[in-house]
Each structure stands twice: as C-alpha cells, then as structure tokens.
C-alpha cells in the first residue's frame, strides 16, 4: 500500500476545489439555517444560478465574463426574492418544501430539450472560462505545496480565487454576526414572534438572510463552473444541498469557520477512505470487494462516521455543547 499517495490525495482534497465549493455553499446555508433558522433545501439552485449565469452569458451570448458574474449575483438575489416572498410569512416547513422544489425546477429548466440552444440540455455548456484563466498569474506547470501536495497552474488559480472568496465570505459573516443585525437574525431563529413583539420587521430580515446566503451560494456556483470549465445540469441535484448540510453540521452550525472546517474534513475523509480502500484492494489487503465497489462503500463508511459524530459530538466540531444542552430542556 502506498501510504504517501493516500495521505497526499486526502490532503489535496482537504484544500481542493471541492472543499472550496462546498465550503462556500455551506457558508451560505449557515446564514440561512445556522443563524436564521431558515430550512433552505434548495441551495443547489443558487449554485446552479451562479454557474449557469457565467456559462450562458459567455458561451451562449458571447458577452464578457464579468458581466456573467454580475448577472449571477443579481439572479441569486432574484431567486431569493422569488422563494422568499410567498413562503417567508408562512411556517418554516413551507420554505423547506418550496426550496427543494425550486431547486429541481431550476435543474429541469436548464436541462430541458426545448431550451437546448440556450442552456445546452443534458450536456451543459463549455468554453466560457477562457477569460478567467487568461487572468491566471501562475505560469504553466506543476506546483508543489509542502512535499506531498501538488496542483497544476489552472487549479492553483481556481484555488487562489476560491480561498480568497471563502476568506471574504467568512469575514463578512463574522462582521455581520457580531453586529446588532446578526443579533436580530439569531433571535429570529429562536422565536420570531418574540422578535416581532420587539418591533423588528422579521420578514425583511429573513429575506435579507435568504439573499446573502444565496449570493454566497452563487459564488460557490462560479467556482464550480470555472474549476471544471463546464456546467452540467445534473451536478446541481438535491444531493449537492444535502452534502452541504452534512458539511455544515459536521463543522458546527452557527459558527463562522464551521462550514470551512466541515468541508475540509468531509472531502479529506471521503478521499482518504476512497484511496485507502482502493490501495488496500490493489495490494491484496482487502479481498472481498473490487475497486469498482469502493465508490459505494466509501459513502457507507462516511455515513457511519457521521452517525458516530452526531452521537458523540452533536454540536459539530466547533459547536458549543451548552447550546445542545439547552435543546434537551
């Protein structure tokens, strides 16, 4: 067994593009669910909006890349409004139902045959990331970080932009949640009627929360599209949202760095188990499965790990145990 390979793959995954994408998606969800208590099960839709905004603007209409970015951010806000206006006045579970449906609607629209000329159908769109990579300051080549991790110049550029976005988002959330604005959000999570009785416009705050979390989700969509230099509709299924929730709960909801650490651990662990199992099968240490079966088994093991985490550390890695104790009262 090649332990160096296993460790280096896991370490690369821990800071890689997947981690960046899921960290951003989960930071957005953290604003919704962790701080405001909004059950948004359609975060994938915000990612899809971001990713497709760039792709359609550049490859379908041949417009500049940064216009695509602006459109993506604007559309994320529009989507938040569309989701929020009918549901935010209702009970929390309505938002959950509407968001999960909306995410599927967005996915089915972009994969529709009738709109193939615009969105590219099931094949998606390619060839929109040239202007992004033309800004790449890293000369072509392989870059070694430490002794075991290495990325090519394109990945380095995506990761640089991605981690800068993660850092900016975290700092933004830090400032917001320290402020009276964040206090209103957290209070809404606890009991919105109490907040209303204190003269705060709960609907407006929930809407702001939905928008900010959605915009951060669309940033994840940008990175998703650019890292692959392609978009496909089926990448934005509800699975993506549920992984983002997993990441959030793993790291600890309502903690600034919870989603980031959660994403890093989730992907490092997943790759560690995958590569570890593959290597073990190849080396003949494990004989009862084939390398083809590893893909399914890794999720079983990750699932088991998450269950153990929730049993022994329900507050997540960064969570505060005192808060969980309050729930039990």
């Amino acid at each position: 067994m090649d332990w160096t390979l296993i460790i280096s793959r896991a370490a690369e995954a821990g800071i890689g593009t997947e981690t960046v994408i899921y960290a951003l998606a989960a930071i957005g969800l953290n604003v919704h669910f962790g701080y405001t208590g909004l059950l948004n099960f359609g975060q994938a839709a915000f990612l899809a909006v971001g990713a497709y905004a760039i792709a359609v603007t550049v490859s379908t209409f041949g417009l500049p890349f940064f216009l695509g970015v602006a459109i993506g951010l604007a559309l994320a806000i529009v989507l938040a409004l569309l989701l929020g206006i009918p549901t935010l006045r209702l009970r929390a579970d309505y938002l959950a139902i509407v968001t999960i449906a909306a995410a599927e609607i967005v996915r089915l629209v972009v994969r529709a045959v009738a709109l193939r000329d615009t969105f590219g159908g099931t094949d998606g769109l390619q060839g929109f990331s040239d202007s992004f990579y033309s800004l790449n300051p890293y000369p072509a080549g392989q870059y070694e970080l430490g002794s075991i991790i290495g990325f090519d110049h394109r990945t380095m550029w995506v990761l640089t932009v991605g981690w800068v976005l993660v850092a900016i988002s975290c700092f933004l959330i830090y400032l917001l949640m320290k402020s009276p604005w964040g206090r209103v959000l957290k209070a809404i999570r606890e009991d919105e009627d109490a907040v209303r009785s204190l003269g705060k416009n709960v609907f407006s705050y929930k809407m702001q929360s939905l928008m900010i979390g959605g915009v951060i989700g669309s940033l994840a969509g940008f990175i998703f599209a650019l890292s692959r230099a392609a978009v496909q509709p089926d990448l934005f299924s509800t699975e993506l949202t549920f992984y983002a929730y997993t990441v959030l709960i793993l790291g600890g909801a309502a903690r600034i760095l919870g989603p980031v650490v959660g994403a890093a651990i989730f992907w490092a662990l997943l790759v560690l188990i995958t590569t570890g199992l593959e290597e073990a099968v190849r080396a003949g240490v494990i004989t009862f499965i084939t390398t083809n079966q590893v893909g399914a088994i890794r999720f079983m093991l990750v699932g088991l790990g998450l269950m153990l985490l929730l049993i022994f550390r329900p507050q997540g890695i960064f969570g505060d145990k005192r808060e969980i104790a309050l729930d039990a009262r």
Partner: peptide, 13 residues
C-alpha cells in the same frame, strides 16, 4: 409592547 403567555425567552442568546 406585549409579552406572551408561554414565555418567549430567546434561549441561545
């Protein structure tokens, strides 16, 4: 300004 029959303390604040 009102209060509630079932007290609404914001527990995690």
């Amino acid at each position: 300004v009102r209060t509630f029959q079932l007290t609404k303390a914001l527990s995690k604040l």
